[in-house]
Amino acid sequence: MAKKFNEMAWHEYPLGFMVTEPGCAAEYRTGDWRSQRPETDKSKCIKCGVCYLVCPEGAIVLAADGTYDFDLEHCKGCGICATECWTGCISMVEEGE
């Protein structure tokens, strides 16, 4: 998309507020809605990928060593990864002021 919605004037909007390019939600920083962020104790991570599968936002990314990192620009802090993690290596931490 040439211009993001939040840079457009009202008369520049596409018909019916439709999105014609897939995946454009990635362009919006929605991670600042978060009040808690996930943190991993990587020593306990068994690289199973359950967190990657359950994340509703696609905000968990595979790291080079086979463990997983968080895309904090899009993670909304729902905590599903922490609840589902088999080894309990993910914990939710309050965002600082």
């Binding site: 919605f5 939040n6 457009m8 004037a9 009202w10 909007y13 019916g16 507020f17 439709m18 999105v19 014609t20 897939p22 919006y28 929605t30």
Partner: peptide
């Protein structure tokens, strides 16, 4: 195309 999108506060009024 996607119809019926979410409009976050930054884009809804327009």
């Amino acid at each position: 195309v996607s119809m019926g999108m979410v409009g976050i506060p930054e884009v809804y009024a327009e």
